[in-house]
Design a protein around this nucleic acid. Structure first.
Lengths: 187, 187, 187, 187
DNA sequence: TATGAATGAGAATTCATTCAT
DNA sequence: GATGAATGAATTCTCATTCAT
């Protein structure tokens, strides 16, 4: 087996697992294929990850912290633009872990650790949207929580489940504008 | 093996497959367990469904048609109430196939037939929401398509993915009210 | 794989397991070698015996009932001869399951079912020896229980553990005579 | 890994191996568990004992010399008491290596070195019993060899195989008295 | 001398699928 | 049509052993 790649073997194994799990699902991916793809002998996979689900947990722990600095996206008085920048920033940050994101949705049911990670991520998303709305439209009298929840649903839905829908970005843009307009009007 | 239950063996096999696939996933469910649960001999499962994926396709074909008659829910001039009744009707109709709904999301990636069924269902959902909005608020100048897309996201998200979130109904109610208000204001 | 032998596959698997376990021990015998020896495909071994220890339990259940009819061996008034005949009868009956006998001793510690079987067998042995002593020497005033226990130890020791000692039969004969003499003297 | 215990690493490894082999058997004990239990890194086990069976041979060589000084136990003219003291002394000396004793029986078949050690120990046992009988009952006309063999069987049986039988000591006491009485009567 | 990462052969077990009856 | 014994490829996991440091 080849081995002298740049990254350490443990990382290469996780990379391979991430890609393959995302492509075919956890159950449909033999550890042997992970080893092949990582360029390590079969035994090494189980040396680092005694049981197969340990791979999944390690992947969850590798999840990047997707918190976006509100100050970096808020444009005072312009909710449309502010939310737009937030979503763009989230997209960029999530983009790197899009595959991972997707696979998590799929395995959440059967792996509690994954489910917990998903909930945390969703709550964080709602919170960030709400903060940006509040910061860009301080006196908004509308139901900001609902708007945040709606947008978070749409973002999550797009990132994790509906990745097959290619016009996602366009639709998202229009939905976002709709929400922003609603928020501004109720000012 | 038990046998003389009320439903024919083929149906019992599909019922069992639906439950078990939803619980543990397609790959993690041996056909032998489906046979056990259905109370039929192992061979019979493969007699009716030569290959395992055939079970999944048969389940997709069993999907109920969730079209709700617009006339039955629209309250002229009251979008909030109209959408509310629509969502309630959809919930009722989907309720019976909630497990199935959920399992479809999970298997969509690896089974094209399932993915296609999902897209059809989502498009139908958007269409119905749009129709109800238009019927209850004929002169609405807002971006009805986006509103419909947003609500469809939220509904789908709740039905299929976020089924673990218990306050789903409450949040949905508030989100819906937010959307309706936005639509009415732009009238 | 060959298959049209005289005995049914399940029996052939047990025969093979018995021989191989006795030769190399339970842990050192792969199920694949059992399959080879039995002339059946590997899968069939696990079809009949889901887990490897199930093979051991099935072997224990195959143990012949070694009860010897006292009437057939007792020579009234002659303990030496009576015990001699009993031991010979036990030897003959045990002989057929000598390998099994031996392997049971070895696996008793780690397999409770085996340990239980061994205890039952030993108690039965003591009981039979005592019955024969009593029947051939009714008025014996000696500690018949101890004599029976001693002889049972020696028999068990020889059958199960000390099978490598080749002069076993000769020694046993002398020991038996010693015991018998002791019993007669105390009459 | 812990390390600065009182005993040197090599000894701790053997101690751990002895315990674990006795508990689960040689084959069922991974060297890694031996390392864990000994509190040494995995590599060190193979550093001291290149192959796993080497551990077994080293254990056999650690066997204490169980020779009991006849003078210390013989009570002239009293075989019962003499043998009693001998067995007590053997018990005490064996007690420290009871686990080892037991594991040897189990592994004797597959490890010639172990089998040889066992034979040596048994012969030594017979010899000692005979010496004590002769010393305490010089003019005994009975078959002392057989009596010695019988008692050695019972002692071995108890020490090595029947360690699960809790009333071992009591039964042994009665058997011993039976033998002694027999020997005295034939005087 | 000591270490623990790395290796790969081989173990038990699972399971979709076939097929004779 | 129905059945369940039979098959064997594939899968997860174990572990003695090696070896660079």
């Amino acid at each position: 087996m080849v081995s002298d790649d740049e990254r350490p073997a443990r990382e290469r194994i996780l990379d391979a697992a991430e890609t393959l799990f995302a492509e075919d699902g956890f159950d449909a991916t033999p550890t042997s294929r992970i080893a092949d793809r990582a360029g390590v002998p079969k035994g090494l996979v189980h040396y680092y990850f005694a049981r197969k689900p340990d791979l999944l947990e390690a992947l969850v722990e590798r999840l990047p912290d997707e918190r976006v600095d509100p100050a970096a996206v808020v444009v005072a008085g312009d909710v449309v633009e502010s939310l737009h920048r937030l979503v763009a920033a989230l997209d960029a940050s999530l983009g790197s872990s899009a595959v991972l994101s997707h696979l998590l949705w799929r395995e959440a049911d059967t792996h509690p650790a994954v489910l917990a990670a998903l909930h945390t991520r969703f709550d964080l998303l709602v919170e960030q949207i709400r903060d940006v709305i509040r910061a860009s439209l301080p006196a908004c009298g509308a139901d900001v929580d609902s708007a945040a929840q709606l947008l978070a649903s749409a973002v999550s839905y797009r990132h994790s489940v509906a990745r097959h829908v290619d016009d996602g970005a366009v639709a998202m843009h229009r939905e976002l504008r709709f929400l922003a307009t609603a928020l501004e009007r109720s000012n």
